[in-house]
Design a protein around this nucleic acid. Structure first.
Length: 271
DNA sequence: CCGGACGCCTGTCGGC
DNA sequence: TGCCGACAGGCGTCCG
């Protein structure tokens, strides 16, 4: 489910309901996520006051005075906040209950998500330390992309989905930002000019900003913490639109597989 | 170092 | 209707 805009939508939904409150209970119904949930996690967190909910890449940080809970939603994870009473559904693996009666509930059918604890700065954690800049970081420029792409034969779509290059660009928004920048997704990363990388930088930001403003993209079942879908789905220009006319030029949008992932582009305006 | 394939899981959808 | 393969928003690892 979640790329950066969906994770940010989740953060914005969760944060105001639980920030500043003390964890009174932590229930782990299924420990078997991508990384097994540590059995000692509840004892570290219960009694601690949640200071902030932050985001880095597609990770959420739940910041306590004694450490940070690093939480990734994987492919199918989502969070809802409700008053602690409703009976958990099938894939509701974790509850965090707070002293204001709110229950943060994590659902993840495919269990590609993970929860990890660190008492060091999270940026030093193994999951985080190798990650590239955020898309809005001043480091993330056309010149930066151009330099990183030197000598690389990888398709540009895979290149911008590589978290070591820039974080947060997943399969949907990679197709979208390349379309908006007029770049063919299969083009070798090293064969794209500085000019076009500058343009791509901007479209990555524009697409992600737009998606965050709409509460993310719902393809099948993503919902914000209020249960409402993300409305950016309606604004997708190429993703999921194979055989439809391109809204820019009228040519037929094509679907192909790049790096084992579905990709969508307009063969006429993306060269 | 690089690029590509694969695996982790479950659910859903389309074709036969 | 039922079965079976393909595919789905991520990402770490392994192999050539």
């Amino acid at each position: 489910m979640p790329e950066l805009p969906e994770v940010e939508t989740t953060r914005r939904g969760v944060a105001p309901l639980v920030t500043g409150h003390v964890v009174t209970e932590m229930i782990v119904r299924n420990h078997r996520l991508r990384i097994p949930v540590s059995k000692s996690l509840p004892s570290l967190i219960i009694g601690q006051r949640l200071q902030q909910v932050q985001r880095r890449a597609k990770y959420l940080y739940f910041c306590f005075s004694n450490g940070t809970l690093i939480w990734h939603l994987g492919m199918s994870g989502s969070m809802r906040v409700n008053m602690a009473s409703s009976t958990p559904a099938k894939h509701d693996h974790i509850d965090l209950v707070f002293d204001n009666g709110q229950c943060l509930r994590y659902r993840d059918p495919r269990r590609f998500g993970l929860v990890a604890w660190t008492s060091s700065p999270p940026s030093a954690h193994k999951l985080i330390s190798h990650l590239g800049p955020e898309p809005w970081d001043t480091l993330f420029t056309g010149a930066y992309l151009h330099k990183k792409a030197r000598g690389r034969k990888i398709a540009v779509k895979n290149f911008i989905m590589d978290g070591k290059i820039v974080v947060g660009v997943g399969n949907i928004y990679a197709s979208e930002s390349l379309h908006m920048a007029g770049i063919n997704p299969r083009r070798a990363a090293s064969r794209i000019s500085l000019d076009r990388y500058q343009r791509l930088c901007g479209t990555v930001q524009t697409v992600l900003d737009g998606a965050i403003a709409k509460g993310g993209t719902t393809l099948k079942d993503f919902a914000g913490t209020d249960g409402k879908p993300g409305y950016f789905s309606q604004e997708l220009l190429v993703y999921g639109r194979a055989d439809e006319p391109c809204q820019q030029c009228g040519a037929t949008i094509k679907q192909l597989v790049i790096g084992q992932r579905s990709s969508f582009y307009c063969p006429s305006c993306q060269q």
